[in-house]
Structures are given as structure tokens and as C-alpha cells.
């Protein structure tokens, strides 16, 4: 017994080191699996609050671009209002031809990272505003990401510039779909994989969200085709997509609350169980 105590006292630093190393490595490994720990994320009270303060200052520097975007969107909405026949052409996020009823929650980005392989965005509304995991996040130009963690007042978003993110997307002119991923290289481009070679694709074609996911409604803008590559020994294209959004400069965002989501998930679960 004495020897055990002696051993612990003699090696206390090493034991403390190994313990803390174990904890931090566990947190690291956990963070690389898809759904992360709730504790170490910027959606908590401390970091969310600090980011909100910082953002209050940064906001003033971006007022001009933010105003320009709002003016543009106002103009678009006004054109919608005055020319009602346009409604069928424009990919409105809510109630696409009444197929997928969805609610929109307006929120603001208070922290945005884009310089690592796994990027997250923090927004200043959370569970109190009705935000839950796996809701889609967009802005006036296109998609931004999917909600990951929520706290009462803040939430984190898995940005599309995150190598873990996978979003169903398709060509606007046909119905060939693939999954949208990121290769971690450039903040202006994402990759659309698993598009069959049968599809006829040209540079400049528009890519929109596909109707297969329960997160986003169909037809939200993503970007345009920039480069088309073919993998060897495979019958699929890998397409470089140039994003409409500048992911390094985000202001207000909309969170899509799909009403059909639970029904769809339950239905699909039922199919798998049987």
C-alpha cells in the first residue's frame, strides 16, 4: 500500500499529464465523428456571449455590404410582389409550389470560421427560437450549412466548407443528382460527387439542392459548374462547383424549419424496420 502511494506521489506529474492527455484526445476523436460533444462547442453561454459582443463591433464595418444585399433582396421581393407570374420561376425557400411547407427563422452569424478543414459557424438564435439539430441554413444567395449543436440562445452550423458535410444536390436543368462535399482546399469551391456520366453537363450550369434530403427544400441555389473531372475506372463525374455565396463574408441567414421532416423520417424508419 505504502509503495502504491509512493509511486503515485513520485509520478504525480506524469499521471496528471496522462490523464489530461487522455481527456483531450478523447474530445478530439469525438469531434471527428459526426455528431459532436455538446460541451466543447461555441454554442455555449460563455463563448456565444463573447462572440456576440465581438460581432456587435464587426457589424459596423460591414454595414455597407449588408445594406447592399438587403437592397438587392428588397428589389427582388418587390419584383415578386408586382409581377406575380414570377413566383413560379424563382426558387423561393418557403412553400415551393406547396410541396414542402417550411417556416423561416431569421438569424445572424456571430462567428464564422473558414480556415480549417472542419469549419463551423455560430449564429445568435438557438433552441428558444425553435432551432433544432439538422435544420438547413441559407441566405439570399444560396445554401450555407446545416445546424449542428444548439443551446438556448445560440447554435452552431456545420458549414458547407466542412469535410464532414454531405448535402444532396442536383443539376437545375435535369434531375441528375449527387452529393455535395468539400475537399478542404478553396473557400470558393465545393465538389459535387457521384453524378453519373450519362448526365450532360456544361461549364456554367447551375447546381441547386435536390429534393432527396429532408433538410433543404428542392431548388435552392448552390453555385455554377466550374470544372468537370472524371475519376478513373468509375462511371461518375466529380464536378467543381463555384459557390454563389462568399463564405468568408456572411451576415444575416435564414434557417429552414421543414414541417414534413418528422413525418418523412418516421416513414423512412418504418420502411427500414419492416
Amino acid at each position: 500500500m505504502q509503495q502504491i502511494f509512493n509511486f503515485i506521489i513520485r509520478n504525480s506529474n506524469r499521471l496528471l499529464f496522462l490523464l489530461l492527455l487522455g481527456i483531450s484526445l478523447a474530445l478530439t476523436i469525438q469531434s471527428h465523428s459526426f455528431h459532436r460533444s455538446k460541451v466543447i462547442s461555441s454554442a455555449n453561454f460563455l463563448s456565444g456571449g463573447v462572440y456576440e459582443r465581438i460581432n456587435h463591433i464587426n457589424e459596423y464595418l460591414n454595414l455597407r455590404t449588408e445594406n447592399e444585399e438587403l437592397v438587392l433582396e428588397n428589389a427582388r421581393l418587390k419584383s415578386l410582389l408586382f409581377n406575380k407570374e414570377d413566383t413560379t420561376k424563382l426558387p423561393l425557400p418557403d412553400s415551393i409550389k406547396g410541396v414542402k411547407p417550411a417556416d423561416i427563422i431569421v438569424s445572424k452569424v456571430i462567428h464564422n470560421s473558414y480556415n480549417t478543414h472542419e469549419n463551423y459557424i455560430t449564429i445568435n438564435s438557438g433552441a428558444n427560437d425553435g432551432i433544432r439539430q439538422d435544420m438547413g441554413v441559407i441566405n439570399s444567395k444560396g445554401i450555407i450549412g446545416v445546424i449542428d449543436n444548439t443551446s438556448p440562445r445560440y447554435a452552431t452550423v456545420i458549414s458547407i466548407l466542412n469535410m464532414k458535410s454531405q448535402i444532396n444536390a442536383k443539376l437545375k436543368k435535369s434531375n441528375h443528382f449527387g452529393s455535395l462535399t468539400w475537399d478542404g482546399k478553396s473557400t470558393g469551391f465545393v465538389q459535387l460527387e457521384d453524378v453519373p456520366r450519362l448526365a450532360s453537363i456544361r461549364k456554367g450550369d447551375t447546381i441547386v439542392t435536390g429534393g432527396q434530403s429532408v433538410i433543404f427544400p428542392e431548388g435552392i441555389n448552390i453555385g455554377t459548374v466550374d470544372k468537370i473531372q472524371t475519376k478513373e475506372n468509375s462511371s461518375y463525374y466529380v464536378i467543381n462547383v463555384k459557390l454563389f455565396n462568399d463564405m468568408t463574408n456572411l451576415g444575416h441567414v435564414y434557417i429552414i424549419k421543414s414541417k414534413d421532416r418528422e413525418e418523412l423520417i418516421n416513414l423512412e424508419k418504418k420502411g427500414k424496420d419492416e
Binding site: L16, L27, T28, S31, I40, S41, S42, S47, Y120, T122
Partner: peptide, 24 residues
């Protein structure tokens, strides 16, 4: 030092959304 460094890293991780890499 070891314990305070762990805390330092953990707070950084909280702000960077990076799991436990700074702490490690």
C-alpha cells in the same frame, strides 16, 4: 502548469469549435 495549460487549450477549443486539439 500542466493543469492550467489544459484549461487554456480547452477554452480555445470552445471558441474554435475544434473538439480537443488545442487542449492536447
Amino acid at each position: 502548469l500542466i493543469f492550467s495549460s489544459f484549461l487554456l487549450g480547452l477554452i480555445m477549443d470552445m471558441f474554435c469549435n475544434s473538439g480537443g486539439i488545442h487542449a492536447t
